[in-house]
Design a protein around this nucleic acid. Structure first.
Lengths: 129, 129
DNA sequence: GTTGCTAGTCTCATTTAGAGACCTTATGTC
DNA sequence: GACATAAGGTCTCTAAATGAGACTAGCAAC
């Protein structure tokens, strides 16, 4: 008997392995994008401007910050608003869909906290053997 | 009032932004690894051998299949067993920790299926504007 | 007039990923 | 006996993604 995830992968296979046809894969690409989740987590704190995000995540380059924010905006997870101040400022806000994605990630965040030590142990063992 | 995720990011910040000190980030790197989850999903179906995995995921290169399996083995999410057949065969199996990671991802898989259409719509709108 | 802030863009170097040839040992086919 | 095929990879070369950091414009404060 197959479980739920397997069925999803099978569905995707049935569609000819087109990565753009697999929702899980598309969303994983997002989650995968290295900076996506960290930006969303930061925005969960409230709207923030470009440089504020850069300061909050000091090891992201401006290049990737711009690119990731564009991707998030394109997919409707974040909204971008320009204010006509001098100089103009830009504010990024989590959309309802962005918030729901963050909620959906909660199980994974919990797992990460619960199992990180196990992973580190496994790495030590592997390094020995 | 801050929510749960924000506290986690703040904790990580308090530790000096060392990526290796942030469980969420470490696990995200795994989820991020593009092939990790697809391999785990395939193994959820039961143990599989190297070339069987390659056939199940036809768009992965041998190079990345090897590398991803090594990472999963190192972190204790998958076990590798060599059988002394001729030629020797190698079987990969989901560990209990790997299974629990997959369970933790369930919320995200559901979200992906529920929201993929919204994302596609958002992309269309963005492409117009 | 010099510096700093805004939100980026642009170029170049490094890192990572992908494609595919190649390896060893053994089996079945002709 | 020669030839193709299978196993589970490794190796090299190329292509794509990423990171570091210089540079931009317009305006305010010193």
């Amino acid at each position: 008997m197959r479980d739920v995830q397997q069925n999803r992968l099978d569905e995707w296979k049935a569609q000819g392995f087109d990565p753009t046809a697999c929702p899980v894969r598309q969303v994983l690409d997002h989650v995968a994008a290295k900076w996506t989740m960290l930006i969303l987590l930061e925005l969960a704190n409230g709207p923030a401007r470009f440089n504020a995000l850069g300061r909050a995540l000091p090891d992201i380059s401006k290049r990737m910050l711009t690119q990731t924010l564009r991707d998030l905006e394109r997919d409707g997870l974040v909204t971008r608003e320009v204010f006509p101040t001098k100089p103009p400022s830009v504010e990024y806000t989590l959309s309802p869909m962005g918030q729901s994605l963050l909620s959906a990630m909660d199980g994974l965040f919990d797992w990460a906290n619960d199992n990180f030590d196990h992973i580190k142990q496994a790495r030590d063992v592997y390094a020995q053997g």
